[in-house]
Design a protein around this nucleic acid. Structure first.
Length: 580
DNA sequence: GCCGTTTTCGGCCCGACTGTTTTCAGTCG
């Protein structure tokens, strides 16, 4: 473990504990407790060290006295004796057997105890040598499916980006609609509908009077490479592009309950069903089962939530992180919508590393109905070969002024703000002098290099930038790249307090690899009084469409339109910035 | 191990699908 155990590191320990306990067949509710703690910690907006410093560890849902103590041990020593004792009972390699689809904790435990298998490689050898057949209950089909599962696990199937998942899901739905004209409704659900930054598999829901026929048609689509399982209402398939997709088909009258069930999250559904049970209703994807055995079906999600006395909850909020309490109290937020967006305040052009000139980018923005944009090319700094210095910024200013004059002359209500994306050095200085920044309409300050800093250094770096009187936006604040690097361990609360005090906007960068800030951080930042801006960071006119991913991310952070500066008019933005 | 509009003790969501079974356990979402 690194010098600063990240939330991710610690979450991984608790997930591993849950897996090992489950393999050892320990109490399933204790297993569940560790698993939940791992999941919650993995998505926390601030470093665990920050929670502990404030004595707030036990306020984290799913973290009680015992787990809080273990977090403390991990933060202080990077070690956890309890975890080490488990690893002595079950070699860590046994855990990787769980990655094989179809192998769960019971099977993994038996493979270890009865055959001494302690890794994927050993499992493969044993399966190919026919040694698995010696186990009671292991028939030819089971062994065959394990062999297939091993190759799937070996392919290291990664979670896919939200943007790619949406493309595939929409293609799949279109294909299904074409194959089944009688389809009354079809939609994607799951983590994709909740807008998570990455998605493990596609969950497709379809409604038709003859549901089994829809399942059959689904499994026969040309996009399908292999059928994993198929019944009367569900099927699981592998697409040629490597993605896995699940379908649920229901009669139209059950659309609401099925959509709710299949959208999740798991934690949200468990909480929902507990609330239903408290009212004498047992809920499943088929509807509500009353105490007398009768079934209450729901054609819409609104009916599902209404049945237990709640308003409809937007999918982006369904993580069991307070949405039920807010729904009951009538305080659910009115979330920002893509149609609220009037500006994009972080765009590049061929003046630095963009692929289109300023006019092209501006016209793309006008096509989207925006009223203003900011052109924010890179400052000259280490590694940025085409970055702008003071002289080129002045030349760029003239080009933008000419374009604005042209729009005004043609009576077009559209304005281009002249900005820059200036680098924040590791110490928190800016790569351009103050007098140059003072000439610009708007300044985005971003860190691009040396992101592996201590929590203190990473936070101080950004806060120093916030305190610069010319900085208006902190771009992609933590600097994560999905699938390749974690973000800097920034204390979001501290950053947001400073941003609120100095009237600096925190960015939700909509780039499919970034989505930074993420939803949890947005929520935390808004709670601290900060205002955000959702920007595409487009380097090509097509990239302006990324805005939808940023909006979904902000919605996951409970953001309303008023808290998003690029939903404001140009005049309102100017007034807000000028009052710094 | 966590948690509280039934509870500080006694609960902890629900059902489809599969394979190998004569009635069900394991896995998955």
């Amino acid at each position: 473990m690194t010098a600063y155990p990240t939330n991710h590191d610690i979450a991984e320990v608790f997930s591993a504990i849950a897996d090992l306990m489950e393999i050892l067949d320990e109490d399933r509710f204790r297993v569940q407790a560790y698993r939940r703690a791992g999941d919650v910690i993995r998505h926390l907006p601030a470093p665990l060290a920050t929670y502990r410093a404030r004595g707030e560890l036990e306020q984290i849902p799913g973290v009680g006295k015992a787990i809080a103590e273990k977090i403390g041990e991990l933060l202080d020593t990077g070690e956890l004796p309890y975890y080490n004792r488990l690893r002595e009972k079950v070699p860590p390699g046994v855990r990787e057997l769980l990655r094989v689809p179809g192998i769960g904790p019971r099977t993994a435990g038996r493979l270890y105890r009865e055959l001494g298998i302690t890794s994927l490689a050993e499992l493969k050898v044993a399966a190919e040598a026919g040694r698995l057949a010696a186990l009671k209950g292991f028939g030819a089909k089971t062994i065959d499916s394990i062999l297939q599962g091993i190759s799937a696990a070996e392919r290291q199937e990664r979670r896919m980006l939200l943007a790619h998942a949406i493309d595939s899901a929409e293609a799949l739905i279109n294909a299904l609609r074409a194959a089944v004209p009688a389809l009354s409704q079809a939609a994607y659900a799951g983590s994709l509908r909740r807008g998570r930054p990455t998605v493990g598999d596609l969950d497709i829901l379809a409604a038709a009077d003859d549901a089994p026929a829809v399942v059959r048609a689904f499994t026969m689509l040309p996009l399908v490479a292999r059928v994993e399982s198929a019944g009367d209402e569900k099927a699981s398939i592998l697409l040629h592009n490597g993605m896995q997709a699940d379908l649920i088909a229901v009669p139209p009258g059950m659309w609401g309950s099925a959509l709710q069930h299949f959208t999740g999250s798991k934690a949200h559904n468990i909480h929902f069903r507990e609330l239903a049970l408290a009212q004498g209703l047992s809920f499943s994807e088929h509807g509500f089962r009353r105490a007398d055995g009768t079934l209450l079906t729901c054609a819409t999600e609104e009916e599902v939530y209404a049945a237990i006395g709640l308003p409809w909850i937007p999918p982006e909020l369904r993580e069991d992180e307070g949405e039920f309490e807010a729904a009951r109290a009538g305080t659910l937020p009115c979330l920002v919508e893509l149609s609220d967006i009037r500006a994009d305040l972080h765009l590049h052009s061929t003046w630095s590393d963009g692929r289109a000139d300023i006019r092209t980018m501006a016209e793309a923005a006008r096509t989207r109905g925006y009223s203003h944009i900011a052109i924010t090319d890179h400052s000259a700094y280490m590694g940025m070969t085409h970055g702008l210095d003071a002289e080129r910024l002045r030349a760029q200013r003239q080009e933008i002024a000419a374009l604005n004059a042209e729009y005004a002359a043609r009576g077009i209500p559209f304005r281009i703000l002249h900005g820059v994306e200036v680098d924040i050095t590791p110490e928190g200085n800016l790569a351009l002098p103050d007098d140059v920044l003072a000439e610009l309409d708007i300044v985005v300050a971003s860190a691009h290099i040396q992101l592996r800093q201590s929590p203190e250094a990473a936070t101080e770096r950004l806060i120093r930038a916030v305190r610069n009187p010319h900085v208006d936006i902190i771009g992609h604040p933590v600097g994560r790249m999905l699938g390749s690097r974690d973000g800097a361990p920034v204390d979001i609360d501290a950053l947001a307090y400073a941003a609120a005090e100095h009237r600096v906007l925190l960015e939700v960068n909509s780039g499919p690899h970034r989505l930074d800030l993420d939803g949890a951080a947005v929520r935390r930042a808004l709670a601290s009084g900060a205002v955000i801006t959702i920007n595409s960071d487009a380097h090509h006119p097509d990239n302006l469409a990324w805005m939808r991913f940023g909006v979904v991310t902000a919605r996951r952070g409970w953001a309303g339109a008023a808290q998003v500066a690029n939903t404001w008019s140009d005049e309102a933005l100017q007034e807000w910035l000028s009052r710094r």
